[in-house]
Design a protein around this nucleic acid. Structure first.
Lengths: 196, 196
DNA sequence: CCGGCTTGCTGAGCAACGCTCAACAAGCTA
DNA sequence: TAGCTTGTTGAGCGTTGCTCAGCAAGCCGG
């Protein structure tokens, strides 16, 4: 990493797209260990081997930068979770749930950082997080072949908060088997949407 | 408010306890409109009519300050929610739940700010928030007259995340009556603890 | 009334960080 | 080679968290 920081190289000039991608990538690498707000421009620039000024050339403001980073993280997760279009509706929901648990198991700290940072102070970042949750709920509802009235959305969104919390603490301290966890989550979801 | 900022007064000297209380109070007033992290020492000092330095005399660091503010907010809420000791176990749980909904209805933005700020970047503040949730769960479990093994705690904590989210969105957009909401929440809780 | 002590309180100033701006230079094209 | 575009930099400004030496309010013993 940071090959361009080698002092010997006479100064490498990148295309705009490359630089942006590199900077976002650095943000993603920093995210698990650093709360989003504490991510400093200096540090990112140093890692990229560029001056602070250049970062402001690509992202007008610090907020704009880490919003982009958060959005990249969200997209990364969504790509992983969204069901392949061929499968059956039932399979789609259980598949997403299963992949979500797997995601949390694999990217433990990253995911926590994403959720944390999202809830945190900044409204812009919170917005990205809300967007992600709503897209997931949207997909889940259509997969369940249910109309999405406001009430059902609220319930499923809240169920997702439940799921996030439970899967998180379960990954820290597994108090049941993985299939048990999945069954429980699915059961609660089914009862809730039936409730409407 | 800010009577001491009047230029005419020759310089008022307060006791340590008073000043601390005043500063925390100002933090509490600022909390609803300002994300915790963006709360600036300058602003607080200005409102208190004192110099920045004095604030650092009472709170060694900015973090220490807004952790104290957050803790004050949490204690304020806990005082409101905790059941009076005389009542029956059943009454205690439903009472807490009812008061929680009332709390969210009344202190809408403050509460959101508390939850948000808590989730956000800073580990210290997050810790205060976790403490609060665990105390609530603790009380709920003893009120339900259930032993609190790890698994049940996880489930009730997750249920509380569910509750926070649902009550929050419900307060924004009431998709059911208040009693219906309470019944639903209670029903989910009962099923979950029975699940153990 | 006065010297002295405690301690609430201040102002100047430093370092870090977000952000700006004028200007340099890499690499392409005519 | 001249000229243009645009990636890139360094100096520098304002704000903010934080430090430190010292002032002064209020109480004490004499």
């Amino acid at each position: 990493m940071a090959a361009s920081s080698t002092p010997g190289s006479p100064r490498l000039r990148r295309t705009a797209g490359d630089r942006r991608a590199q900077l976002v990538q650095i943000g993603l690498e920093l995210l698990p260990t650093t709360p989003v707000q504490e991510l400093t421009i200096d540090e990112v620039a140093r890692r990229a081997g560029i001056s602070r000024s250049l970062l402001f050339h690509y992202f007008a403001t610090k907020r704009e930068y880490y919003t982009a980073v958060t959005r990249a993280a969200a997209d990364f997760m969504l790509d992983h979770l969204l069901p392949s279009p061929g499968t059956s509706p039932e399979e789609q929901v259980s598949g997403m749930l299963d992949r979500y648990v797997g995601w949390v198991e694999t990217f433990r700290e990253s995911h926590l950082a994403f959720v944390r940072g999202a809830g945190g102070g900044d409204p812009w970042v919170a917005e990205v997080y809300e967007e992600t949750r709503e897209r997931l709920v949207q997909v889940a509802l259509t997969a369940l072949e249910l109309p999405d009235d406001v009430r059902r959305r609220q319930l499923v969104l809240a169920w997702f908060a439940f799921t996030e919390d439970l899967v998180g603490s379960w990954a820290d301290e597994p108090t049941m088997s993985r299939p048990e966890l999945l069954a429980l989550l699915r059961d609660v979801l089914d009862r809730l949407v039936a409730h409407s």
